[in-house]
Design a protein around this nucleic acid. Structure first.
Length: 279
DNA sequence: CGCATATCCTGACTGC
DNA sequence: TGCAGTCAGGATATGC
């Protein structure tokens, strides 16, 4: 669910809502969310700390702390951060795994039915200030740019399919299944092309399309799908789903040619594309 | 090394 | 209506 545009929307919310606040208490209610390091390290690493910045790298949220360490949050498929400040607060549900209470009695909740999401505190940062646990990530298209030369180098000689490579976080950080399909549509490329088969011109188009789709999706505050499980920090849905050209539109007419949208299987996952104008 | 597959987990939907 | 089967936005370990 949450890919770069959704995570960026949440990041912007965190910047306004929680940066500058000091953590009073952390309650870890679910076992699986904190699994990379011992859970006690999360609690002791956060309590008493003030959040100093809200960053993002790919689909990871990075909340800087005033002791130089970083709280890393990944929403995976169904994770949601909810910030509550008013007097009327919903009861803590079965899928709420972490509650962070701030000194001003506002709170940040982490809700995640499928429990794939992850939280950890990292104090080992590389020379760019990135937690070493995230050292494998490729370029973030909006933070780092996405030069065609970089993509060309990463796709050269690869037999894997384009969608697989676009969603490989070691190649590009932030793209998931939905935006990979939308990017391929915009670039007029089949998602099942082998990476190495792209011409220089096609790679240029792909790089431009990736940045354009992601920028527009951020401007629309992300995509909320049929189950509406993606919501921002205030519980509001995004609107970019209204502009999806292919994702979840099987059988519907293409917005660019006279053909229609079809679904392929790439690995165990669906890929949506126009049968007429993607080559 | 590159690539494909299985797996973690719950909930929503489909078809009988 | 109930129930079994399928599928879902992600990442990673494994096996060939």
């Amino acid at each position: 669910m949450p890919e770069l545009p959704e995570v960026e929307t949440v990041r912007r919310g965190l910047e306004t809502a929680v940066v500058g606040r000091r953590v009073a208490e952390v309650r870890v209610l679910g076992r699986r969310t904190v699994r990379r390091h011992p859970a006690a390290g999360l609690t002791s690493g956060l309590e008493g700390r003030t959040l100093t910045a809200a960053g993002r790298l790919g689909k990871f949220l990075l909340l800087s702390l005033d002791d130089g360490s970083v709280l890393v949050v990944h929403l995976r498929m169904t994770g949601q951060l909810l910030y509550l400040s008013g007097p009327d607060r919903p009861p803590i549900g079965a899928h709420t795994h972490i509650v962070v209470r701030f000194e001003d009695d506002t709170e940040l909740r982490f809700i995640d039915p499928r429990t794939f999401g992850e939280w950890f505190v990292s104090s080992a940062l590389d020379d760019r200030g990135v937690p070493v646990e995230l050292g494998h990530l490729g370029r973030d298209p909006l933070l780092d740019g996405l030069p065609a030369a970089y993509l060309a180098e990463r796709l050269a000689g690869r037999r894997a399919r384009l969608k697989t490579l676009l969603t490989d976080q070691r190649v590009i950080a932030g793209i998931g299944s939905i935006y990979a399909d939308e990017i391929c549509f915009r670039a007029k490329l089949r998602p099942d092309r082998s990476g190495g088969s792209l011409t220089g011109l096609e790679i240029k188009s792909l790089a431009r399309s990736a940045r354009a789709v992601l920028r527009e999706a951020v401007a629309s505050r992300g995509s909320s799908l049929r189950d509406l499980s993606y919501r921002d920090l205030d519980g509001e849905i995004g609107s970019y789903q209204q502009r999806h050209a292919v994702y979840d539109r099987v059988g519907e007419p293409c917005r660019r040619c006279r053909d229609h949208v079809v679904r392929l299987k790439i690995g165990a996952r669906s890929a949506y594309m126009c049968g007429g104008c993607q080559l």
